[in-house]
């Protein structure tokens, strides 16, 4: 099949950036979306042009590196799927496909489709952990955890930190990302001692980083490749207000 790609090219953070058209020909429908970009990039390099820069690493949907808007939807049209797991059989001959980077003030573009997501790391650094030094742990089975809580914690912990939630949100809000971590640790007994402090500092960092706020459109949940639930956001709202108003 043949496609027209409309790709966001931006040479650096200071550049304004623009959409550039590329015709890609003879695409095999078994290719992944990223492999299709590889093929285009090989052609560009052969012509001595700079290839389209995009983040990717594991290409099996777990590392969270890949990050691109495909026709206005993070990771493309398939639900619960990262861009690296999206395959070209999802498209048809003659399609025009827009490819853009995540756009958010807190995720400045580095080049083309590559953005700086270190704001997420700083949010985790401000409290997304249990303070336990290596060697201090008691026997793993000394602390039983209700199976349902463990499963719910896992559902939240499945977040891969890709940033699709921010990209999808009309307000570029990071609530789902932050809530996933707050909720993962908040549902486990290990997370209780720091529960109030954690939510306070993580939300405060989130706000300082320049993300928007939540207007409950739930686009984040729909875009999330790991289908993290917005119930986690409700839990974070509750934890935050409880810790603000309570002791």
């Amino acid at each position: 099949m043949n496609l027209t790609l409309k790709v966001w090219r931006q040479s650096g953070p200071q550049d304004k950036g623009k959409i550039v058209d590329y015709a890609v020909k003879d695409i095999n429908s078994h290719m992944s979306f990223l492999e299709m970009l590889d093929v285009l990039n090989e052609e560009l390099i052969a012509k001595g042009e700079e290839p389209i820069a995009f983040d990717h690493d594991c290409r099996e949907g777990i590392c969270g590196s890949c990050s691109m808007m495909i026709d206005g939807i993070p990771h493309g049209p398939d639900r619960g799927t990262t861009a690296c797991q999206l395959h070209m059989r999802r498209f048809k001959d003659g399609d025009v496909v827009y490819v853009e980077p995540w756009q958010a003030k807190a995720f400045p573009v580095i080049k083309d489709l590559v953005v700086d997501r270190s704001a997420f790391d700083r949010i985790i650094q401000s409290g997304g952990f249990v303070s336990i030094n290596t060697g201090n742990a008691q026997d793993a089975n000394a602390l039983p955890v209700n199976k349902d809580s463990a499963e719910a914690a896992f559902d939240a912990a499945a977040c891969i930190g890709c940033g699709a939630c921010v990209a999808a949100c009309p307000n570029a809000s990071a609530m789902l990302f932050v809530a996933a971590k707050v909720s993962h640790l908040g549902k486990l007994p290990q997370g209780q001692p720091e529960r109030a402090k954690r939510v306070q500092s993580m939300v405060s960092t989130m706000d300082t980083e320049g993300f928007g706020s939540c207007t409950n459109t739930f686009e984040c949940e729909a875009a999330c490749p790991k289908e993290i639930s917005v119930t986690n956001i409700a839990q974070m709202n509750r934890d935050y207000m409880q810790s603000s108003l309570g002791d």
Partner: peptide, 22 residues
């Protein structure tokens, strides 16, 4: 064995049985 203890203490959500144990 220490690894499992350490990871559980960090909040790694390992699979559990209904009794709450690993």
């Amino acid at each position: 064995n220490n690894i499992i203890d350490q990871c559980v203490a960090q909040g790694v959500p390992f699979a559990r049985d209904y009794g709450g144990l690993l």
